[in-house]
Design a protein around this nucleic acid. Structure first.
Length: 542
DNA sequence: TCTGGCACTTG
DNA sequence: CCAAGTGCCAG
C-alpha cells in the first residue's frame, strides 16, 4: 500500500523531472511563510537516514485551540481548504537528497458521528472509506535543502465530499473523524517503482485530527475559524453588538442571528454533557493502515484530553492509487487506491531496524499494518508529544509521530479491488496537464503491470519501543515496510491522461463525468479483503 | 443533511 | 477590477 503508492508517486515525480517537462516545480513558495527555518541541523552529517528527519507542525498552538474544541473541517463539492492549514518545518534532511512530501488523510476510527447536545457522539458505523487520495506537495520532488529552507505549506490541499471528484481533492465522508499524515519519501535514485529500498517516513500530529462536516456544528469552532482565518474576517463581529450581522442583513441596527441564539442556547445545555462523546475508543491511527480495516489495529491511544483525539482508533489506510496531476498551482494530487494497511506488528521480521529511532518523547511503538501478504509493515511510533510541552511555538518541538520505513520493493497490489470506477478519465480536468505527464499508474493497469515486486519488506522501523501493541498515546508514527501490495480496484478506468496543454479548469463540470461509477463504493469487497491475513490487529473498538 | 447563492475578504 | 476563499442562510 502505501508503499506502493508512494513508490508510484515517486516514480511519477521523478519521471516528471527527468522528462524535463516541467520546470516549474517550484511553485509558490512565496506563500509559505517564512520560517524560521534554520538551517539545518548543524550536524550536517548526511545522515541519510530518513529517520533522522524531524518535522514540526507550524502554528501548533492554533491547532491545539481547535483540537481542544473538537476541530471540524468543512467539505464541499468543489473542495474546501483546511483551516488551520497544514504547514510544517522540516529539519534533518540530507540537503542534497531529493524528497517527495505528501499528505494523506486517513479515518481515525470507524465511527460516524453526530453533534448532539453540543458535543460529538458516535452515531453508528463509518461509511466505507473512499478511495484514498494523496496530496503531493507541489514542490516535489525537491532537495532537502529546499524543504528545510522554509516552511512547507500544504494550504492548497482541498477536501471534498464528492466521491466522484474530478479535481483530485481528497475525498472524505461527512461526519467522520480523520487524521492527516505527512509522508516524506526519498526520491533519489532509482526509485522507480518498486525498486529497491525506497525509504519514507510518516509523521502524524494528533492535533490535526478533525471531523469532516458539511456545515459547522460546534459554534466554538465557527468562532475560531472566523477569528483566525483572514477570509472570514467579514464575519468578525465588531465589538459589542453584532454589527456584522446587521450589516450583512442590510440593517442598520445590530441583530442577533438565529444562529447565535441557537448556539447560545445549546451551549448552555451543553455543560451537562459528558465530555467525551460516547465512549469511543480511540486510537490513533498510526500507521498507515489501509482502508480496509483489516489490518490494523487500532491503536488506541487516546488522548484523554481531546475531544477529538480521543478516539482515534485506528486508521486504515487508504491509499492507494494515485493519480497525479497538477492543479493549477502545481499542486498535484494523487489518488491512491487503497492502501492497505496492515497491521503488522507482530511480525518482527519485518521490522528491521528500527531500533534506533525514537523520538525523544515518545514512545510507543506500534505497528499496525499488516501487510497483506505480509509484506509490509509499518510501525507507528507515537510521540507523545504532548508531553512535551515544550517548544512549540510554532515550530520546534512538535511532536509528531514518526515512522520511518524503507521498503524494498513494491508489492503488488493487493487483492482487493476497490471499486473504482468512479473516476473516469477525466482528462480534461487536469489543468496543467502537460506537466503532469505521467500518468499515474493506474491501478489496475498500471499497477498491475508493475513489477510486482517482491514484497519483501524490509523495513526498518523504528522499533524501538516496544511492540506493537497499541499505544496509548497520541500521536503516531509509522514505518514503512516494504511494500505491500495493494491492489486496486477493479474497475478503474483509465487514468488520467494528460492533456497537453489544456488548461482547463474544470471548475464545475462534474456533470460531465459519467458517473458510471456507481459502483459501489461500498462494495464490501474491497473493504475487507485485504489484510486480514495479517495478524494483528483488529479493531477493538467496540 | 446538504446545497447553492450571497456578501465580504484576501491576493 | 477579478479570482478565489469564508461563513451564513434559505431551501
Amino acid at each position: 500500500m502505501l508503499q506502493e503508492k508512494l513508490s508510484a508517486v515517486t516514480d511519477e515525480c521523478m519521471s516528471r523531472v527527468q522528462s524535463g517537462g516541467e520546470t516549474d516545480l517550484l511553485p509558490d513558495q512565496s506563500r509559505l511563510g517564512l520560517s524560521t527555518a534554520p538551517s539545518i541541523p548543524s550536524s550536517s552529517e548526511p545522515d541519510q537516514n530518513i529517520e533522522n528527519i524531524k518535522v514540526a507542525l507550524h502554528e501548533r498552538e492554533l491547532w491545539k485551540k481547535f483540537h481542544e474544541a473538537g476541530t471540524e473541517m468543512i467539505i464541499t463539492k468543489a473542495g474546501r481548504r483546511m483551516f488551520p492549514s497544514y504547514k510544517v518545518k522540516v529539519t534533518g534532511m540530507n540537503p542534497k537528497t531529493k524528497y517527495i512530501l505528501l499528505i494523506d488523510i486517513v479515518p481515525a476510527d470507524d465511527h460516524r458521528y453526530k453533534f448532539c447536545d453540543n458535543k460529538w457522539m458516535v452515531a453508528g458505523k463509518a461509511e466505507p472509506a473512499m478511495p484514498g487520495r494523496l496530496y503531493v506537495h507541489p514542490d516535489s520532488p525537491a532537495t532537502g535543502a529546499h524543504w528545510m529552507r522554509q516552511l512547507v505549506s500544504f494550504q492548497k490541499l482541498k477536501l471534498t465530499n464528492n466521491h466522484l471528484d474530478p479535481f483530485g481533492h481528497i475525498i472524505l465522508n461527512s461526519m467522520h473523524k480523520y487524521q492527516p499524515r505527512l509522508h516524506i519519501v526519498k526520491a533519489d535514485e532509482n526509485n522507480a517503482f518498486g525498486s529497491k529500498n525506497t525509504a519514507y517516513c510518516t509523521h502524524a500530529f494528533h492535533e490535526t485530527a478533525f471531523i469532516s462536516v458539511t456545515s459547522y456544528q460546534n459554534h466554538k469552532i465557527t468562532q475560531l475559524k472566523i477569528e483566525n482565518n483572514p477570509f472570514a474576517k467579514g464575519f468578525r463581529g465588531s465589538e459589542e453588538g453584532d454589527l456584522r450581522v446587521s450589516r450583512l442583513q442590510g440593517k442598520d441596527y445590530p441583530v442577533i442571528s438565529k444562529n447565535m441564539v441557537r448556539q447560545r442556547l445549546i451551549s448552555s445545555h451543553s455543560h451537562l454533557a459528558g465530555k467525551l462523546g460516547a465512549g469511543v475508543l480511540t486510537g490513533h491511527p498510526q500507521v498507515l493502515s489501509s482502508y480496509q480495516y483489516e489490518t490494523g489495529v487500532p491503536l488506541s491511544n487516546s488522548d484523554p484530553q481531546d475531544p477529538i483525539s480521543n478516539h482515534f482508533p485506528q486508521s486504515r489506510d487508504p491509499s492507494l492509487l494515485y493519480h497525479c496531476f497538477k492543479h493549477r498551482d502545481n499542486a498535484r494530487h494523487l489518488e491512491l487506491g487503497y492502501l492497505e494497511s496492515s497491521s503488522v506488528v507482530s511480525e518482527e521480521h519485518y521490522l528491521r531496524s528500527a531500533t534506533s529511532y525514537e523520538s525523544p518523547l515518545m514512545s510507543h511503538p506500534y505497528c499496525t499494518e499488516a501487510i497483506t501478504s505480509r509484506e509490509a509493515c509499518m510501525y507507528g511510533s507515537i510521540e507523545t508529544e504532548s508531553g512535551s510541552g515544550v517548544g512549540d511555538t510554532d515550530d520546534l518541538t512538535n511532536s509528531s509521530s514518526i515512522n520511518c520505513n524503507m521498503w524494498a520493493t513494491m508489492q503488488p497490489y493487493p487483492r482487493y479491488s476497490v471499486e473504482a470506477v468512479p473516476y473516469q478519465p477525466f482528462t480534461a480536468h487536469f489543468t496543467n496537464a502537460a506537466t503532469v505527464t505521467q500518468v499515474v499508474p493506474h491501478p489496475t493497469s498500471s499497477m498491475a503491470s508493475r513489477p510486482q515486486a517482491d514484497l519483501g519488506v524490509y523495513n526498518s522501523a523504528p522499533v524501538q519501543r516496544g511492540l506493537p501493541v497499541i499505544p496509548p498515546s497520541s500521536s503516531s508514527s509509522s514505518c514503512s515496510p516494504a511494500v505491500s501490495g495493494s491492489r486496486e480496484r477493479s474497475g478503474h478506468p483509465p487514468l488520467y491522461h494528460k492533456k497537453p496543454g489544456s488548461p482547463l479548469r474544470p471548475h464545475r463540470d462534474f456533470s460531465a463525468y459519467p458517473t458510471q461509477g456507481t459502483i459501489s463504493i461500498r462494495d464490501p469487497s474491497y473493504q475487507y479483503q485485504v489484510g486480514l491475513s495479517s495478524a494483528g490487529t483488529h479493531w477493538t473498538d467496540g
